[in-house]
């Protein structure tokens, strides 16, 4: 089961409203390498992991990604909360306003809705852990792109935190991959 804790993993400060940045940031909410994709990918793959270590790391990183989703949502919420329809239109979010007003939605930076096609589950732990490591690198790269798109020190601080977490997750998945390789080799009989 999952429990909600009424606090963010990392405090989100936003210096000024910035609808344009919100439009870019939303990709880490509902884009291919975003936090929804990440959490669902890991929490779904854990059922076909062969070892307890692998089940644990996918459960825990999947859970941390849910907290990251909340950090992104908070940033987007704060950046657009007082924006007028005109300001949203100017930032390329006129279509978003037409359909969703100020609500958040699972889309990427170009407005493309989230799809289960963004995530994979081969049921092969080696293939799946490689997918997870690649996903962490793609998220890291995306956070770097996003950092280049803003000068808001609060937003940069939160994005740096999230970028660092991707690096740590990549490391932990790499260790898990080695461990699963060893486990599978030990099960081979000739």
């Amino acid at each position: 089961m999952w429990i909600y804790e009424k606090k963010l993993e990392f405090p989100v400060r936003v210096t000024k409203p910035d609808v344009q940045m919100a439009k870019y940031l939303i990709t880490q909410y509902g884009g291919p390498d975003g936090e929804l994709s990440a959490s669902l990918r890991y929490l779904n793959q854990r059922y076909s992991m062969p070892t307890n270590k692998a089940k644990a790391i996918l459960t825990d990183i999947g859970t941390e990604e849910l907290a990251h989703m909340e950090i992104i949502a908070t940033m987007v919420y704060k950046l657009v909360k007082d924006a007028s329809p005109e300001e949203m239109k100017r930032a390329g979010l006129g279509g978003h306003y037409a359909q969703h007003d100020h609500a958040l939605f699972w889309v990427d930076a170009n407005g493309v809705p989230w799809s289960a096609k963004y995530i994979a589950a081969l049921g092969d732990p080696i293939a799946d852990l490689h997918e997870d490591m690649a996903a962490e690198e793609k998220a890291r790269a995306t956070y770097e792109h996003l950092i280049h798109l803003t000068d808001d020190p609060g937003v940069i601080e939160a994005l740096r935190f999230l970028r660092e977490r991707e690096v740590v997750h990549f490391q932990r998945f790499g260790e898990t991959l080695d461990h699963v390789h060893e486990y599978l080799n030990s099960k081979k009989y000739f």
Partner: peptide, 12 residues
């Protein structure tokens, strides 16, 4: 945050 970081480390 310290607990989360140690938690993930301990998993592996």
């Amino acid at each position: 945050f310290t607990a989360i970081e140690l938690n993930l480390y301990l998993d592996t």
